[in-house]
Nucleic acid binder design. Structure first.
Ligand SMILES: [Zn+2]
Ligand SMILES: [Zn+2]
Ligand SMILES: [Zn+2]
Ligand SMILES: [Zn+2]
Lengths: 158, 158
DNA sequence: GCAATAATGGGAACGGTTTTCATTACCGAT
DNA sequence: ATCGGTAATGAAAACCGTTCCCATTATTGC
């Protein structure tokens, strides 16, 4: 279930590509090269929204690449430690991951309880408000995660 | 780990108490009375932030009440279905639950990566902004969940 | 009280994630 | 180019939160 889809519009391919950026970072950080890591990074790079470990596993298998599920979790953890991916938790006990772009160009998610889709959205004013809240709390907020629950535009129109 | 604490200030005890409200609702809904449900509701009523099923289990055990973990999950699910509790997910694969007060008086959480505490906060302007976002998306948003990650006021001052 | 049946709790089952460990592959030194 | 030390990998087991199953207990209408 949860056929991940998105309502993104923009996101052109610019700059030194996320996967190159990531692989370079790994090398700089002293990691060795490895096929599993490259495969996961490459796959994540071509998504524009979150995937679960199992989804990554299935897609790599489908694409001929045989990567152990343990390696996938390992790579995801490494990426997360280096803040190169964002962990997205839409409930159901499964963690999802998506590329964290350096430009801070991040989005949030609406989980539709009608069709089960995950709809991504961005909102600059919301981000500004969140910054303001962080300041008011006196906390050094490194990141945030927001999930809206409800009926997406399609489902609420029907 | 994760010693749940809070920075709440307000929250006076007013009205017909959350537990009474909840128990009445269960009766109206055709449920029979039961010890496990009463115990869980009573415990949740005296918290001002979220508890996990295991934490509820431990506290009830500690308080002499022996309640099966299965019953706790069942009651939490019933409460959730009736929208009497809010499910809070601060990651780590454990679901937490807290009383949902009828007045819509809900709060959000900052997960401190320094001390591990969960700090609760409210912000009316943020809620308004979230409403605006929902409207812009054209979605019928039933609820939302926000988690901030970073160093709480105490930890970022140290 | 009595019967019907909902509520409960122990334990097994389940599914996602982590750990273990033997094997493979990378990379610097030779 | 080869070798050796060691990181990376993947299969399988372990782990852990949650759900399911079912025999027992407790509640409610009669
Ligand atoms: Zn996304
Ligand atoms: Zn944001
Ligand atoms: Zn809370
Ligand atoms: Zn809110």
């Amino acid at each position: 279930m949860t056929t991940a889809a998105h309502s993104h519009s923009g996101h052109a391919h610019e700059g030194p590509s996320w996967s190159e950026h990531v692989l370079a970072r790994f090398e700089r950080e002293g990691f060795r090269a490895g096929g599993a890591r490259a495969a996961v990074v490459e796959l994540l790079a071509e998504q524009d929204c979150c995937l679960s470990a199992q989804e990554i596993f299935d897609r790599l298998r489908g694409g001929g690449r045989s990567v152990g599920i343990a390696s996938i979790y390992r790579v995801l953890d490494q990426l997360f430690q280096l803040q190169l991916v964002q962990r997205v938790d839409v409930g159901g006990g499964v963690a999802r991951f998506e590329a964290a772009h350096p430009g801070g160009d991040h989005h949030h998610h609406l989980l539709c309880n009608g069709c089960g889709r995950v709809v991504a959205f961005e909102d600059a004013a919301l981000e500004a408000e969140l910054d303001r809240v962080a300041e008011r709390l006196g906390a050094r907020v490194a990141g945030h995660e927001l999930v809206l629950h409800g009926a997406c535009a399609d489902c609420s129109r029907g």
